[in-house]
């Protein structure tokens, strides 16, 4: 297994290069550069920047070189352990993504921390609702939980998230004023105690997390249902029953354990979603996460930030696929990883 892991890790290298190269080329294809908007921006009808100054500016940042040269320079920066400097914010990209004090209390206020928190809560919510439903659906095919799984949850999936977000804001936020819907913390955050702070953040995260969670519930429920059904129908379960084991032990000791394997695959597929922020939900709820950062970076052509986010995404996807495969191999001795 160690050899397998090592080989996979080595192969990840070229894949990673390919991903970043494709992203970089796609980004450079879009016309414009970090300073094109700045040329005529500002208060009032500001005079256009002197073209010689503008060229000089581009040259200083290396933006007038061909794209492969720029890519090479970025790789060199990456190899030296740095993610570069953000063009628009003019500070290190690592600070932009991870916050000023990392690790530590500052992490929560970084875009990555904010997105991870929201996505984690959303995933937990999704699993908390969908797993039990899927489970009971498998135990009683055709029963109430089963109909719930295929009916109500699918109905939820069919609603676009921006629409649901507006609905939640209007009903829960404005009309009934139960939950806040702007940002991650309230103004009084600094003066709150530890538990009060946690509650404050949770209250702010409730609505956006719900928007992110409801769509996937249908799939998780069905997936669980199928996994458990297949497991329940398999030979060893019948054997266990034939041996006279109580149903509880059959279920928990044998069937559920086997259903775990496909669940690992599911988790492996859910992991990458944790770091990518939903652009729509984050901007509707003003949640200071990676999705918002990403949109801003694309509009202002902030290449180092865009690339850093893609790197992060790539690392997480590759890592989680590898992790899922390894876990699968560890959990099921029948699977030979060659």
């Amino acid at each position: 297994m160690a050899a397998y892991a090592l080989r996979r890790l080595l192969l990840m290298g070229p894949t990673f290069l390919l991903i970043t190269a494709v992203v970089f080329a796609a980004v450079k294809l879009a016309p414009g550069n970090p300073f094109s908007a700045a040329r005529t921006a500002g208060e009032g009808a500001v005079r256009q920047m002197n073209p010689a100054d503008y060229q000089d500016l581009l040259h200083r940042y290396g933006l007038d070189r061909p794209w492969y040269v720029q890519y090479g320079r970025w790789l060199a920066t990456l190899a030296s352990g740095s993610l570069g400097i953000s063009y628009s914010q003019r500070r290190p990209v690592s600070q932009v993504l991870f916050g000023e004090a990392f690790p530590g209390g500052g992490f929560l206020s970084s875009p990555l921390g904010a997105t991870l928190l929201l996505n984690l809560l959303a995933t937990l919510l999704m699993l908390a609702v969908a797993l039990p439903i899927g489970f009971s659906a498998a135990l009683k095919p055709g029963g109430a939980a089963d109909r719930l799984a295929s009916g109500f949850l699918y109905a939820l999936y069919s609603l676009p998230n921006f629409w649901v977000a507006v609905l939640l804001i209007l009903v829960v936020g404005v009309h009934f004023r139960i939950l806040p819907f702007i940002g991650m913390r309230s103004e009084a955050f600094a003066s709150l105690g530890f538990w009060e702070r946690a509650v404050d953040v949770l209250r702010h995260a409730a609505l956006p997390a719900l928007c992110l969670a409801y769509g996937g519930m249908a799939y998780v429920a069905r997936f669980t249902r199928r996994a458990l059904l297949e497991s329940l129908g398999s030979d060893f379960v019948r054997a266990a029953r034939a041996r006279g084991l109580p149903e509880g032990r059959v279920l928990w000791g044998h069937a559920a354990r086997n259903a775990l394997l496909p669940m690992i695959t599911l988790l492996g597929l859910l992991l990458p979603g944790l770091v990518s922020g939903s652009v729509i939900v984050e901007s509707l709820f003003a949640w200071p996460g990676m999705g918002q950062l990403f949109m801003k970076a694309v509009y202002s052509r902030d290449y180092p930030v865009i690339l850093a986010e893609s790197v992060l995404g790539a690392v997480v996807v590759l890592g989680s696929t590898l992790l899922a495969d390894l876990l699968y191999g560890a959990a099921d001795p029948r699977v030979r990883l060659e």
Partner: peptide
């Protein structure tokens, strides 16, 4: 306060 969506301004 940073509020990307103009529509939520009035609600806020």
């Amino acid at each position: 306060r940073i509020l990307p969506q103009a529509e939520t301004q009035l609600a806020a």
